[in-house]
Structure formats: structure tokens, C-alpha cells
């Protein structure tokens, strides 16, 4: 593995000093370590934050649920505070062994993946460089990177309007997860560490969240497409659909009542026209519409 330095943080403060200097935080390592093995992080400096107690735990509060960023997916599933819809979704992430290592924060910051990028050195050398590895074009076609974040958890948490608390140096901010993937918050989080995820109580209501997905195998594989539907308790006319895994980052669409059809179909247009995974954009767009219809049927009042 081509990394030049590894340290284990003894405190959150130390970790924040190091990340401010460009060190990469490593928690579960299930995303970072394979990229290191593939030579995609040459020269990277890594600070291990997994042991920091401040970043662990699942707690209920007056307003909802707070999950420490270094809580593993498996621990979240096992927590009695974890609502069934969230536990059920988490049980679909990777496989049992990965879930014991992978963390909630890591799942939310998972690097975007692509069939041309997440490859060993020899394969990439043979195929040529892409935009992310120093080339001047996307190997899937076009002049924009078509890589997508294949995270089921981020899709589901965007669907329920979850927010994250980020520390950077002495600063701390709470950011809507969906905005974390936008340019402004995205730039700010660089050099910081996600401390926790907050899920408001109104999103915890049973039956208000539905998730459908396309995945080749029922375990291990990254999801090809995730579509999550959510409705807000107390305002039953607000139904949203969030598309993930097949898009750069999860995108949430609030469906207008009384005619949501156009918006449902628009979910499909979020999918890039270049193929970054095993399935074609045409199929994924079709499947997004099908799955959106299914999740809406489950969450709509």
C-alpha cells in the first residue's frame, strides 16, 4: 500500500489538527484501504480515528436520534434505539464482516466509485487515465466524471433529511446531509471530521420510509441503484423521493401534490448518461422510475 504515514489519534483535538493539515481520517477503512491497495492514494497520510470515544454511540434525544460517526453499521443495527426502517436498510449494506468494520460516517463520506477508477494499477494502466487519475477525459465518455456514490445509507438518510455535525479545527457546524454533498458544505468539510448524524424524530415514524434497490447479489455488492421514499408525519402531502447509488450523490425530490408523475420521472434524469457501473444509464433510468413508483405507493398517505 502506497501511504507515507499512519498515526492513531489519541484525542479528537489531535485528529482535527492532523486533518486540518491534510491527513485523511480512517475509521472502518472499508472504503479507504481498498483504494490504497489500488494505488489510488499514493503518498496519503492517514490518521486513525476509530478509537475516539466521542465519535461512538447511538443516543435518543428529545428531537430524535444521534449516531456517532465512528459507530459501525453493525452496532447501529444492534442498537435498541435504531428504528426498524433504518436497521432494515443497514442490514442491506455490504456483508456482515464489512458491516462490523464500516462506520456510519464512512458510509456517508464514501468516495464516488466508477468501473474505470476502482481498479488495480495494471488494469488502470492498460485502460488509460481517467479524469480522476490525471487523464483529460472520462473513460465512460464525456468531459465530466460520471462516478457515483454507491452508498445506501447516505441515500436513506438524505431521504429523511438527516443532518451531520462536522468539526473543523475549533469550528463546528450542523449541515443538512444533502447539502454536505453540495459544493459549499463539501468544500468546508474538507479538513474536518464528521462527529455525528442526527435523524429527527418525525422521520422515525414507522411506515413513513420505504427503500427499494437494484443490486446484483443480495450481499457484498455495492448497490447499483437505491430509491428511498419518505413522507413527513403531520404533513402527509409532503412526499419525497431520493435517488442514490446511480447518481454522483443522493438527490432528493419533493413531489408536488396532486400530480407527482412528472417529478417521479424526473428522478430518472438525475442519472448520468455515461455508464460508471455494470448497468446502462438507460436501464437505471427506467428502473429509477419503477422503484420510485413503488416506494411512493408505500409511503404515500
Amino acid at each position: 500500500m502506497s501511504i507515507c504515514d499512519v498515526r492513531t489519534a489519541r484525542s479528537l483535538e489531535e485528529a482535527l489538527v492532523l486533518t486540518a493539515e491534510g491527513w485523511l481520517p480512517l475509521a472502518g477503512g472499508t472504503d479507504l484501504v481498498p483504494r490504497m491497495k489500488h494505488g489510488l492514494l499514493t503518498g496519503a497520510r492517514v490518521v486513525i480515528v476509530r478509537g475516539l470515544k466521542e465519535l461512538h454511540g447511538v443516543h435518543t434525544t428529545d428531537t430524535g436520534l444521534v449516531v456517532g460517526a465512528c459507530t459501525t453499521i453493525a452496532d447501529l443495527c444492534r442498537s435498541s434505539a435504531c428504528p426498524p426502517w433504518l436497521g432494515g436498510a443497514c442490514a442491506q449494506i455490504a456483508g456482515p464482516r464489512v458491516r462490523e468494520l464500516a462506520t456510519v460516517g464512512g458510509a456517508l463520506l464514501q468516495e464516488r466509485r466508477c468501473r474505470y477508477y476502482n481498479r488495480p494499477v495494471l488494469w488502470r494502466t492498460a485502460s488509460g487515465a481517467c479524469l480522476r487519475t490525471g487523464g483529460d477525459r472520462c473513460l465512460a465518455g464525456g468531459d465530466r466524471c460520471c462516478a457515483t456514490q454507491r452508498s445506501l445509507l447516505s441515500t436513506v438518510l438524505v431521504a429523511v433529511s438527516a443532518s451531520v455535525v462536522i468539526s473543523r479545527g475549533a469550528e463546528e457546524r450542523s449541515v443538512l446531509l444533502e447539502d454536505l454533498y453540495g459544493p459549499e458544505a463539501g468544500a468546508w468539510r474538507a479538513g474536518g471530521i464528521i462527529r455525528s448524524v442526527s435523524i429527527s424524530r418525525m422521520a422515525e415514524a414507522e411506515g413513513k420510509v420505504a427503500v427499494e434497490w437494484i443490486r446484483r447479489r443480495a450481499s457484498i455488492d455495492y448497490h447499483d441503484l437505491v430509491v428511498a421514499g419518505a413522507s413527513r408525519a403531520g404533513s402527509p402531502h409532503e412526499v419525497s423521493v431520493t435517488v442514490g447509488a446511480a447518481v454522483p450523490y443522493p438527490r432528493r425530490i419533493v413531489l408536488p401534490s396532486p400530480a407527482p408523475g412528472g417529478a417521479i420521472r424526473s428522478a430518472a434524469t438525475l442519472i448520468p448518461s455515461a455508464q460508471s457501473g455494470r448497468l446502462s444509464p438507460a436501464y437505471l433510468r427506467h428502473a429509477a422510475v419503477v422503484l420510485a413508483g413503488r416506494v411512493i405507493a408505500r409511503v404515500a398517505p
Partner: peptide, 21 residues
């Protein structure tokens, strides 16, 4: 799945695609 999907379903038009690009 791409070969097996019901042809009539696959041809479903996607409205609003251009506007959202």
C-alpha cells in the same frame, strides 16, 4: 435484467429530462 425487462416498460418516456440536465 436489461434484456429481460418488459419492452413496453422500457419504452416509458421520461418527461422533464431535458429541463433538469
Amino acid at each position: 435484467s436489461e434484456d429481460l425487462v418488459r419492452p413496453s416498460a422500457r419504452e416509458t418516456p421520461l418527461s422533464g429530462e431535458a429541463a433538469l440536465r
